Amino acid sequence: MPTDAVPTRADVLRLADIGFDAPAALLARHGLALVRVPDGVPIPGSYWGECEAGVIGPTVYARADTPVHSLLHEACHLIVLPPERRAAVHTDASDSIEEEDATCYLQIVLADALPGVGRLRVMADMDAWGYSFRLGSARAWFERDAEDARAFLAARGLLPAPA
């Protein structure tokens, strides 16, 4: 796909495209485990079902057909929670708009840690999948309207140091 093309829901980047090793290592750096679910088997803890990632406690579940943005989103829900709240999570990890915004922001930032992914691809995939933002796109929100999310993450030491 050309780099300036907007992906459709059908051609968003999936774990089958990048493998499980780099995402598993990224999650492990945040105290999370990634469990690969066999193809065709329902994903435990998936809020949306189908191919969407799931969460139960500090574990993220995904299949090869799980979109990378979904894996990052669900993992980031757990990352923004204090460790004592993670253990109680089953399927639905967020209880506030503030946490949801921080989750979206962090998933974009962490996309840069995955080879072959990066924030621009994840933001395009978020738009293709149907995430909605006041400014019309994930990128516009991230670049011009995410001060609260950045402040939430910074206050908790969850933003990577600037390069």
Score class of each variant (00 low, 15 high):
Asp17Thr: 05
Ile18Cys: 04
Ile18His: 01
Gly19Ile: 03
Gly19Gln: 02
Gly19Val: 01
Phe20Glu: 01
Asp21Ile: 11
Asp21Asn: 07
Asp21Arg: 13
Ala24Gln: 12
Ala24Trp: 02
Ala25Asp: 11
Ala25Lys: 09
Ala25Tyr: 00
Leu26Thr: 05
Leu27Phe: 07
Ala28Gly: 01
Ala28Cys: 06
Ala28Gln: 02
Ala28Ile: 04
Arg29Glu: 14
Arg29Gly: 12
Arg29His: 07
His30Gly: 02
His30Phe: 04
Gly31Lys: 08
Gly31Val: 02
Gly31Glu: 06
Val37Ala: 04
Pro38Asp: 15
Pro38Gly: 13
Pro38Glu: 15
Asp39Gln: 02
Asp39Trp: 00
Asp39Gly: 00
Asp39Ala: 07
Gly40Tyr: 05
Val41Ile: 07
Val41Leu: 09
Val41Met: 08
Val41Gln: 10
Val41Ala: 06
Pro42Leu: 01
Pro42Ile: 13
Pro42Phe: 02
Pro42Met: 12
Ile43Cys: 11
Ile43Trp: 09
Pro44Trp: 07
Pro44Ile: 08
Gly45Tyr: 09
Gly45Asn: 03
Gly45Cys: 13
Ser46Phe: 04
Tyr47Ser: 07
Tyr47His: 09
Tyr47Met: 11
Gly49Phe: 10
Gly49Val: 14
Gly49Ile: 11
Glu50Asp: 15
Glu50Arg: 13
Glu50Trp: 06
Glu50Tyr: 08
Cys51Gln: 15
Cys51Leu: 14
Glu52Asn: 15
Ala53Phe: 07
Ala53Met: 10
Gly54Trp: 05
Gly54Gln: 12
Gly54His: 01
Val55Thr: 15
Ile56Arg: 14
Ile56Pro: 00
Gly57Pro: 04
Gly57Met: 13
Pro58Lys: 07
Pro58His: 12
Pro58Tyr: 03
Thr59Asn: 00
Thr59Leu: 06
Thr59Met: 01
Val60Pro: 01
Val60Lys: 10
Val60Cys: 10
Val60Asn: 05
Val60Gly: 05
Tyr61Ile: 10
Ala62Glu: 08
Arg63Ile: 05
Arg63Lys: 12
Asp65Gln: 14
Asp65Met: 09
Asp65Asn: 14
Asp65Ile: 06
Thr66Met: 11
Pro67Glu: 12
Val68Tyr: 04
Val68Leu: 09
Val68Asn: 03
Val68Thr: 05
Leu71Asp: 08
Leu71Lys: 01
Leu71Ile: 03
His73Cys: 02
Glu74Arg: 02
Ala75Trp: 00
Ala75Ser: 10
Cys76Asn: 09
Cys76Phe: 02
His77Leu: 02
His77Trp: 04
Ile79Gln: 02
Ile79Thr: 04
Ile79Met: 07
Val80Tyr: 12
Leu81Thr: 04
Leu81Val: 08
Leu81Lys: 05
Pro82Glu: 14
Pro82Thr: 14
Pro82Lys: 13
Pro82Ala: 15
Pro83Met: 14
Glu84Phe: 10
Glu84Asn: 03
Glu84Trp: 08
Arg85Lys: 02
Ala88Glu: 15
Ala88Lys: 11
Val89Gly: 10
Asp92Trp: 15
